[in-house]
């Protein structure tokens, strides 16, 4: 049942001298939903690009189950409006037959747009189209980069609901990046809080109590997620470098917080 699809161990990516992501360990198995959260510029997108193989690792190891199909939903489609393209044609470019494509469009609720131009879609419709496109390829692993971007708040909830139901039906693994903390906490199995390194990881209910989470998102957010606040072992400066907190009085806190 819990067949591992992808594993990262000690993974790091650096561009020239800048370490974007370092020392990440994670495993995603069939049926898992792993959500990566973290501030802007924390390396979230770089991390999933490494997982899907678009970005090479500069440290550590990436293992993917041989022969798995990955469905990728990019953050945004920078569409050249100079390229005329219908939804139908865009779906067919997966190389799958139209029946599978149409079914995927139906699953994500945008089948009625098949004949429309992709330049006429709203943000939410585009996200659903991109998910449908990933689905048509019958992925073992679905990777989504901020799937709810540009989607209104009601749409966001139903989008996450959709992702969860797809996971249930297809028994695929899901890795996604998200900023919508409330929704993430409700819709995910495993959370990684990333700020260049893994600040903390675990189940949603644990993570919101983790000092690493509080450090990244602030006490206010953590509190609003009905969590108690506690102090952290380190801070980040503006470049994201780790600065140890002056008083080390919270060393005794039991947490999965990665030591530095």
């Amino acid at each position: 049942m819990t067949e591992a699809l992808v594993k990262l161990s000690g993974a790091g990516v650096s561009f020239r001298d800048t370490q974007v992501v370092s020392n990440v360990d994670l495993t995603v198995s069939r049926g898992d939903i792993l959500t990566i959260i973290g501030p802007n510029g924390a390396g979230k997108t770089t991390l999933i690009k490494a997982i899907i193989g678009v970005q090479g690792l500069t440290a550590g190891k990436l293992w993917r189950k041989p022969g798995i199909t990955i469905g990728y939903v990019p953050q945004s489609l920078h569409l050249q409006s100079a390229l005329p393209l219908s939804v139908r044609r865009f779906m067919l470019m997966t190389g799958e037959n139209w029946r599978d494509c149409e079914k995927a469009l139906t699953d994500t609720g945008v089948a009625h747009l098949a004949k429309a131009s992709i330049h006429r879609l709203s943000g939410g419709e585009m996200q659903r189209l991109l998910i449908a496109r990933a689905l048509a390829r019958q992925p073992d692993l679905l990777v989504l980069d901020e799937p709810a971007q540009g989607v209104d708040i009601n749409g966001q909830a139903s989008l996450y609901e959709l992702i969860r139901s797809l996971r249930d039906r297809l028994q695929c693994g899901v890795i996604m990046i998200s900023h919508d903390l409330h929704l993430v906490m409700a819709a995910t199995d495993q959370v990684i809080c990333l700020n260049h390194h893994v600040c903390c990881s675990g189940y949603p209910e644990d993570i919101s109590r983790d000092p690493g989470f509080v450090e990244v998102f602030g006490a206010q957010v953590a509190d609003s997620l009905a969590i108690y606040h506690h102090r952290h072992t380190h801070e980040h400066d503006l470049d994201g470098r780790v600065i140890p907190t002056q008083t080390g009085e919270n060393q005794d806190k039991a947490s999965r917080h990665a030591p530095h």
């Binding site: 690009k49 899907i52 469905g71 990728y72 470019m93």
Partner: peptide, 12 residues
């Protein structure tokens, strides 16, 4: 496909 989206094309 690589004109529409390079990364999508790569993943495929």
């Amino acid at each position: 496909m690589s004109t529409i989206h390079e990364e999508l094309a790569k993943v495929e």
